[in-house]
């Protein structure tokens, strides 16, 4: 079923018999900012596993460490302690050079504020990860067209970001994240800056991409968006405090309300 694993399946070990090992494994992640009296413990002892082909949503109150977790998963930042590995290979302790390679080849990123380059057309923005990694545009000639078609912007290739709506810009950003067939796409509040209609379109697009085999981890505030995920993980004060299955908006809202209402930092984990 997966269509995008051509480059890495060989390295995925299959210990423990028929069950494949998870795509991504984070273990005991800890991350603090600052020092002394003003130190903030953004993540404490976080474990997370993501299976291939899953759409995982991370929810939690503001400041709970969602972005910090996503940055570490996406090799944008390193944990103070703990490990994180993709396809069984650890990357929490790699040097910048290797992290750079991972960012370009293994991960795709979608940002809340789209982060399209204002001077580049939609198609050029989609092509950017290839350019950034020193590849020739010609190799991606059909890929860019088909991705733009896939996100419903086939006729907007030459448009600049300023000529696109927010939702359209975010769709361009999704196409960009997919360009080099990453193992994992990470999205930090991809609908956070969009109205509900455009947000819905973007979420359905992400869902469809996952259904075609892509693995996605996203942070969201919107229970409706989270309900489209396979799994919703709740974070609070830097800790995983719960997890529900996606699919049902009411269930997600209930679980989120529980997390919001639960005991302050350091409380024992609520389990589902």
């Amino acid at each position: 079923m997966p269509t995008n694993t051509d480059r890495s399946t060989a390295t995925v070990g299959e210990p423990g018999g028929g069950r494949p090992s998870p795509l991504l494994e984070a273990h005991a992640l800890t991350r603090a900012f600052g020092g002394g009296a003003t130190a903030v413990q953004a993540l404490r002892d976080v474990d997370l596993t993501v299976e291939e082909g899953e759409l995982v949503a991370i929810m939690g109150p503001s400041g709970s460490g969602k972005s910090t977790l996503l940055h570490i998963l996406g090799a944008l930042d390193r944990p103070d302690a703990g490990s994180v590995s993709i396809d069984g290979r650890r990357y929490d302790d790699l040097a910048d050079r290797e992290l750079t390679r991972l960012r370009g080849e293994v991960f795709g990123f979608v940002f809340q504020f789209f982060n399209l380059l204002p001077t580049l057309s939609a198609a050029e923005n989609v092509l950017l990860p290839a350019l950034v990694n020193g590849e020739r545009p010609a190799r991606y000639a059909t890929r860019v067209d088909s991705l733009l078609g896939r996100v419903g912007l086939g006729d907007r290739a030459a448009h600049l970001p300023t000529e696109l709506s927010g939702g359209e810009q975010q769709r361009v950003a999704i196409a960009r994240a997919l360009l080099r067939r990453p193992r994992l796409v990470l999205a930090d509040e991809p609908t956070g800056n969009l109205d509900s209609k455009a947000g819905g379109t973007v979420m359905r697009l992400l869902r469809a991409v996952v259904d075609e085999g892509q693995t996605v981890v996203m942070v969201t505030h919107d229970p409706g968006a989270a309900a489209l995920a396979d799994r919703v993980v709740f974070l609070r004060d830097g800790q995983i405090v719960g997890e529900v299955e996606g699919g049902d908006t009411a269930r997600v809202i209930d679980a989120f309300g529980e997390v919001e209402a639960s005991a302050p930092a350091g409380a024992e984990r609520t389990s589902t």
């Binding site: 939609a122 198609a123 050029e124 545009p137 000639a141 890929r143 860019v144 733009l148």
Partner: peptide, 8 residues
């Protein structure tokens, strides 16, 4: 040689 909309 180039994808549509790409001049880079």
């Amino acid at each position: 040689a180039h994808p549509e909309g790409v001049r880079l």
